[in-house]
């Protein structure tokens, strides 16, 4: 059917649906294509600092070969995935009780608490990381307090002057957990809040104690929230650049720092692209698993 006029309903809906697609193509799909293509180029000292091979097969696999053979890259990936995994698990362990608590408090309290979770976003992210630097430093009162507590607990022989927190992997995980906790809590809360509380009562009525009710009813029904929150923390945490460069161990960099180094310091765009592509593949895999989980859940009836 031909549109009757320029403001025809059908035409508008196509336009409105088309806009996000256009956005995704121009700003997500195309850049990924460019980066993917670059990862098969070779670096040169020119502008732009890369070129493709002049002869068959035109594409160079050197970058990926280096990626899999040089232990620096492999270690960076390992550290990134390790840090992101630990941070995600910690966010879940801290965020789940908080999200659950948010659904169990009176409405007025709930609003205040939600506000407090979102409030940190009103301050600059960098400022908050710098604040943690101030707290974690060897001469800070916070560090003195932790050291003091430690010294009280352990025998005299183990006493120390201060705890080295800054420039360790621990500091990275700690600040990542702090920064990304809201991204775990909010999707979890949205999920838990929708759950029908009479299901808990039904389970209790059928003989389950509260812990059993949680394991049988609340936990399985909150799986979509756990996965959504987990991805929102894991994916950016794995590619995190700012936090490890400010509080992390510089001799044991994460992938983000490596990409930044290759791109900026070394002017090796193709290598930076190859690492990015590898990271993308690693991060997209859990996303695809999630999509499959969801479609299976819908077919099986979690909804």
């Amino acid at each position: 059917m031909k549109p009757a006029s320029w403001f025809d309903r059908r035409g508008w809906s196509d336009l409105i649906i088309g806009l996000p697609y256009a956005w995704a193509i121009v700003f997500i799909f195309l850049p990924i294509c460019i980066v993917s293509a670059l990862s098969f180029a070779v670096p040169i000292l020119n502008s732009p600092p890369y070129e493709f091979l002049k002869t068959w097969p035109y594409l160079s696999f050197d970058n990926f070969q280096r990626l899999f053979s040089d232990s620096i890259y492999i270690r960076a990936f390992a550290v990134s995935l390790f840090n992101a995994s630990i941070a995600t698990v910690l966010c879940l362990l801290i965020g789940y009780p908080m999200a659950l608590g948010l659904t169990r408090v009176p409405k007025a309290v709930n609003r205040v608490l939600l506000m407090m979770i979102v409030l940190p976003f009103w301050t600059s992210f960098l400022l908050r990381v710098y604040a943690w630097i101030g707290l974690m430093g060897n001469n800070s009162w916070f560090n003195h307090l932790l050291t003091g507590l430690y010294n009280v607990v352990v025998p005299q022989a183990w006493h120390i002057a201060n705890i080295q927190i800054m420039y360790t992997n621990f500091a990275v995980i700690f600040v990542v957990v702090y920064s990304y906790l809201p991204f775990m809590i909010l999707p979890l809360y949205a999920n838990l809040e929708k759950l029908d509380r009479t299901l808990d009562e039904a389970a209790m009525d059928l003989g389950s104690r509260p812990v059993q009710v949680f394991l049988d009813v609340t936990l399985p029904l909150s799986m979509p929230g756990i996965i959504a929150g987990g991805l929102l923390v894991f994916i950016p945490a794995a590619g995190e650049l700012v936090i490890p460069s400010l509080v992390g161990n510089q001799s044991d960099p994460m992938v983000g720092a490596i990409i930044s180094q290759e791109f900026g310091l070394n002017h090796d765009w193709p290598m930076a692209s190859a690492i990015s592509v590898a990271l993308l593949v690693i991060l997209v895999m859990p996303l695809m698993a999630y999509t499959r989980f969801q479609s299976r859940a819908e077919a099986g009836g979690t909804r």
Binding site: T198, L199, E201, A202, M204, D205, G207, V217, P220
Partner: peptide, 20 residues
Amino acid sequence: IAPYHRPVNMMFQSYALFPH
């Protein structure tokens, strides 16, 4: 005596069937 210890069961208005 807690609900889970009572010899009583309930059919809820919304049925409260476990969707999963």
